[in-house]
Design a protein around this nucleic acid. Structure first.
Length: 870
RNA sequence: GGGCGGUUAGCUCAGUUGGUAGAGCACCGGCUUUACACGCCGGCUGUCAGGGGUUCGAGUCCCUUACCGCCCACCA
């Protein structure tokens, strides 16, 4: 075995080591030497594969990204050193609304899917006031162009942070492979009946003009008002017969299809089956019973509209009510003609007059207008009572969601609830309690997953429909492409057996106009990164993956959807582990976010504190735990890195020969070190990286302050060559081991020091093993050595304390030290006495037996003129 | 309303199966000690959120209350 401790070049240890410039130096070297390149000759058992979260490139990276990606990198580096081929790709999430919106503003364009592709299109220098309409392929080209620039910036930051990603393996969620896999998976789900199309009430964002999914909802507290509205009882000539309801959405009265009360509500029991007449519009609607109606709420009677909220949908479906919809996709009330089928009115003229004042208005404006009308007609009882209530929004939207009936694609989830819960239990969650989030979500699923979006920048649904002779679309006559044609864009590609000129012609075909929800693609990241279908060899080496790292807020979306898709595509979990990271909180304990203006640029942080310093802070945040943004910790990390440089320099420069480890304190140090290695390895395997950093740091600090001070003299030969060699061997073994334990956390400084005396990258060096640490002291633990080291440290500490209390320099000689201790400890004294005398500058050392350790220290008298000191 | 976390020194947080409360930062005092003043030595700091229980013994286990955060549900 070659001597692993020899300096390659004795001049390689710098006189004044510094952190400055280490990032640039090692980024370039790692890139040139392909240090993190995935070795695809290795089989699945030798691979550690990571389903990296693709960051949204149209946003900007913030300190939260730096935080969680560091966690993943620590784990990746650990497994690489353990000998695994680490599959660590990087994806870019450039699919979806954020990118689409940014491209529209940046280039001043708007997507019109009906336009043909224009290969010669060049966007103007400056975005024009009037947006230019472009085809979907042109629009997607612009998206790709803009995101390519963003991706460069992101990659630069990631490299600077030291992520050990294989940069030859990147993917984009709008990339060709992602499109192909999304479409392929969809077509197979379609064939199995798991994907289906349905015309149904759907959550709808009126600004984006698209359907959205349950998983993308969020509640926001909004001001609103209860309006008490009077409905006349139909068929009762008595003008006293009224029914009153409370509503926050009076503008939906024209969309009212029934009133509802609880079946056991005695007040309304007699009215079930009767009819009432809507105010202003004179439409007869039934009074029905349903258990979801809450007698405690409002008057106990609710107005059912198509559709005011999700409860309306339930009532509408379960009571078999008609549709009377008034909200258009853009959120404005559509024109309606009263007196026609479905809009019968007791007084069509008056109804029309009222409604015409509402048509074309947004829901908010219509509400103001109809309240005036209701007041004038006397149907409004009292004044509106202002309240604050939670309203559902699309998480990226600005106006409350509406519910519109539309044709959408769905993926079945409800039928598979039990299987999905079982998958969630198979997955190893870090921390384990995060599994509850998954269970909660699956148990709370209210409907199948709506995956179609009426947007442009996304993966198109890969199919067409036949047109009937009258030009209408026959949705049941689907034209599916062959799998080997994928990806396709049905807005420009033509189905087999058709000519381009048959598009949108009677008897011809029409492309499906929708794109997939961004999660419908993101949920396939293991397949996309692994090359499912077009690099099957790679896929089989990496799938199912080892870990999915991600934040807890997207368990219901990304994690759940990925589990779902993998279950459908392969009948297996997509990964063994889910490592859930927390958020970065600002000092006010709020989640850091752009809108709050408290985001610090990651690049500025990296430049100020160094990548290792920032990583040190990040690595101090446990899995799943939100962590305070704390530049102080970054400073501590930076100091640790500097200390590593200096301590390493001391150990490596001017050292003598090394040999067998014979001294008790040396054996004690190595014994503790071996124990540290055992514990660290076990912890990292369980994703407990935080504790490893803490323990290693604590060991290192005491190594520097106690052990190093204790053996300095011996190491220089005070006690002869053999004991110097023992010290040197211990120092080198410890340094080598500590550097490797630190390497996943502080990749730059450890690599720098490693390069002073070792071949190759530390990041490909073997993770330390206890046997290796103990090799120079007989391959066994030395508990007596541990005690000797602790004993010596305590004695030395007492001497330091005395000097500190006396405000004397540490180099003050101790004229007499009396060590009182139990016999067992005193027996250790001879093994440490020489080190103690040298490090404590002890001139005379006496002992005395006592049941507890106690040291009396007498310092040399103060030199200089007597009386100078009080 | 349901679920999941949390509450330990001024701040940020550790605290493995119950066994004398810890670290770092901050603060105070001291020290040029030829690896490091980007350093070193030392000091100060606590009703472990409140209450109850189990136990010889509880920061740790059980019950309960309060507060903070997050997830989900409700939304007439």
């Amino acid at each position: 075995m070659p001597d692993g401790f020899l300096l390659n070049d004795p001049g390689a240890v710098p006189d004044k080591p510094a952190l400055e410039g280490l990032e640039q130096k090692w980024i370039a070297r790692w890139d040139a030497e392909r240090t993190y390149r995935f070795d695809r000759t290795r089989g699945r058992a030798d691979v550690y594969s990571i389903d990296t979260p693709p960051p949204t490139v149209s946003g900007s990276l913030h300190v939260g990204h730096v935080f969680s990606y560091t966690h993943t990198d620590v784990i990746a580096r650990f497994h690489r050193m353990r000998g695994k081929a680490v599959f660590y790709p990087m994806g870019w999430d450039d699919n979806g609304l954020p990118t689409e919106r940014r491209v529209q503003n940046f280039f001043g364009v708007r997507c019109d899917p009906s336009l043909p592709y224009d290969a010669a299109f060049v966007p103007p220098e400056k975005p024009p006031k009037q947006a230019i309409s472009v085809s979907r392929p042109n629009f997607i080209e612009l998206c790709a162009r803009l995101t390519a620039e963003d991706e460069k910036v992101f990659e630069h930051l990631w490299r600077y942070l030291g992520l050990s990603v294989d940069w030859s393996m990147t993917y984009a969620t709008i990339g060709r492979r992602a499109q192909r896999i999304s479409q392929l998976s969809f077509l197979r789900l379609l064939q199995r009946g798991i994907a289906y199309q349905l015309e149904a009430p759907t959550l709808w964002d009126v600004d984006f003009r698209t359907a959205v999914a349950q998983a993308e909802l969020e509640d926001r507290e909004q001001p609103g008002a209860y309006h008490r509205i009077r409905f006349a009882t139909a068929g009762s000539p008595s003008s006293a017969a009224f029914l009153e309801i409370d509503t926050t959405r009076p503008e939906l009265i024209p969309a009212c299809v029934a009133l509802v009360a609880h079946p056991e509500d005695e007040r309304y029991k007699p009215l079930f089956g009767t009819e009432v007449i809507t105010p202003l519009f004179g439409v007869r609607v039934p009074v029905r019973a349903h258990p979801l109606a809450d007698p405690e709420k409002g008057t106990g009677v609710a107005m059912i509209c198509t559709f005011g909220d999700v409860t309306d949908v339930v009532w509408w479906r379960e009571l078999g009510l008609p549709v009377r919809s008034i909200i258009q996709p853009n959120g404005a009330l559509r024109p309606v003609t009263f007196g026609q089928e479905g809009w019968d009115s007791a007084d069509a003229g008056a109804a029309q007059q009222h409604y015409d004042q509402l048509a074309g208005l947004s829901a908010t404006k219509a509400r103001v207008r109809i309240v005036e009308q209701l007041q004038q007609s006397g149907a409004l009882v009292g004044e509106p009572r202002p309240i604050t209530h939670a309203v559902k929004f699309y998480e990226k939207g600005d106006r409350p969601l509406e519910i519109l009936t539309s044709r959408q694609w769905f993926i079945k989830t409800m039928d598979h609830r039990e299987a999905l819960l079982a998958r969630g239990r198979e997955l190893e969650w870090h921390p384990s309690y995060m599994q509850a989030r998954f269970e909660n979500w699956v148990n709370g699923l209210a409907g199948d997953w709506c995956v179609s979006r009426q947007r442009f920048f996304g993966v198109p649904f890969p199919l067409w429909y036949k047109l009937r002779a009258d030009g209408s679309i026959d949705y049941d006559a689907r034209l599916l492409p062959a799998e080997d044609r994928l990806p396709i864009d049905p807005s420009t590609d033509v189905p087999e057996g058709y000519r381009p000129d048959q598009r949108n012609q009677p008897g011809g075909f029409a492309g499906d106009p929708d794109v997939m929800d961004t999660w419908a693609t993101s949920s396939l990241t293991p397949q996309i990164a692994g090359g499912w279908g077009d690099d099957q060899d790679l896929f089989e080496r990496v799938f199912p993956m080892d870990v999915r790292p991600q934040a807890h807020d997207i368990i219901r979306t990304w994690l759940f959807d990925t589990v779902l898709r993998s279950y459908f595509d392969f009948g297996t979990l997509p990964w063994k582990n889910a490592a859930i990271s927390g958020w970065v909180l600002d000092p006010d304990r709020k989640k850091m976010s752009k809108s709050k203006g408290n985001v610090v640029t990651p690049m500025a942080l990296l430049e100020e504190h160094g990548a290792d310093g920032v990583r040190y802070w990040a690595a101090s945040g446990r899995s799943g735990t939100d962590t305070a943004f704390d530049p102080g910790q970054m400073k501590v990390g930076r100091r640790l890195a500097i200390k590593l440089l200096n301590a390493s320099k001391f150990v490596l420069a001017n050292r003598g020969a090394h040999g067998a480890v014979t001294a008790a304190v040396d054996r004690g140090l190595l014994t503790s070190l071996a124990s540290l290695v055992r514990q660290s390895t076990a912890d990292l395997e369980q994703y407990h990286y935080t504790r490893v950093l803490e323990m290693t740091e604590s060991f290192f600090w005491s190594f520097c302050d106690d052990y190093l001070e204790l053996v300095k003299g011996r190491r220089y030969g005070d006690q002869g060559a053999d004991l110097a060699a023992s010290a040197n061997a211990t120092l080198l073994t410890t340094l080598s081991t500590l550097l490797r334990l630190f390497a996943p956390f502080l990749p730059f400084v450890t690599e720098e020091v490693w390069s002073w005396w070792q071949e190759g990258s530390i990041h490909k060096a073997a993770w330390p093993a206890p046997e290796e640490v103990l090799a120079a002291c007989g391959n066994v633990d030395h508990p007596d050595g541990v005690e000797a080291l602790q004993f010596a440290t305590t004695v030395l500490g007492t001497i330091r304390k005395k000097k500190s209390e006396e405000q004397r320099p540490l180099k003050t000689p101790v004229t007499l030290a009396v060590v009182r201790a139990p016999q067992a400890q005193l027996a250790l004294l001879p093994t440490v006495e020489a080190d103690l005398r040298a490090s404590g500058l002890i001139q005379q050392l006496d002992t005395q037996e006592l049941d507890v350790l106690q040291v009396d220290v007498t310092l040399a008298p103060v030199e200089g003129v007597a009386g100078d000191r009080a």
